[in-house]
């Protein structure tokens, strides 16, 4: 099963390689990973998506926590959360397909951020599954290039 894990870490050189080294060294897989500074510039937040049974996820969170530079580890997918990913897609946009492309990205609330005689570059955000749906629909039209950020996620704020 997929798990989205959020890790707060010291914003120092080499910290990311401690995390990735842990995953490669212990044979855990990383489906996506994204990392950037938090409000406090000495601390980074890393979101990673991984998969495994309960025992593996338990080991992953414990092993992450054991890294000295790691401050906090949360398996966000344990509770309610929002997740977003952003993608840039360069898709073929010739006279016959332009309208079709625009229609599709409109449905998915994307926007065109760059135009060339033969392509549109489209920006879209959403859950990983929404992004995948857009890609699947645009693929037959002709995707030239694609860059995804990987998922970022946040637990939902308590309702009361």
């Amino acid at each position: 099963m997929k798990h989205t894990i959020s890790v707060l870490l010291q914003n120092k050189p080499g910290v990311l390689s401690r995390v990735t080294g842990l995953f490669s060294g212990r044979g855990f897989n990383i489906e996506s990973l994204s990392v950037a500074e938090t409000l406090d510039s000495t601390i980074s937040c890393l979101t990673l998506v991984t998969s495994g049974d309960k025992a593996i996820i338990e080991q992953i969170t414990k092993q992450l926590h054991k890294l000295i530079d790691v401050i906090k580890v949360t398996d966000i997918s344990e509770s309610e959360y929002v997740e977003r990913e952003m993608v840039l897609i360069r898709v073929k946009a010739e006279s016959t397909t332009r309208a079709e492309v625009l229609r599709v990205i409109d449905i998915f609330r994307g926007k065109v951020v760059d135009v060339s005689p033969k392509t549109y570059t489209v920006e879209l955000t959403g859950s990983a599954s929404k992004i995948q749906a857009v890609i699947d629909i645009l693929r037959p039209i002709g995707i030239k290039e694609i860059v995804r950020t990987g998922t970022i996620a946040m637990a939902r704020a308590p309702k009361k």
């Binding site: 050189p13 080499g14 390689s17 060294g25 000295i68």
Partner: peptide
């Protein structure tokens, strides 16, 4: 050496 010993130390540092 910090990179080399990352998986075989409890922690390591490069004092920069």
């Amino acid at each position: 050496i910090v990179g080399i010993t990352r998986p075989c130390t409890k922690h390591n540092y490069l004092v920069s």
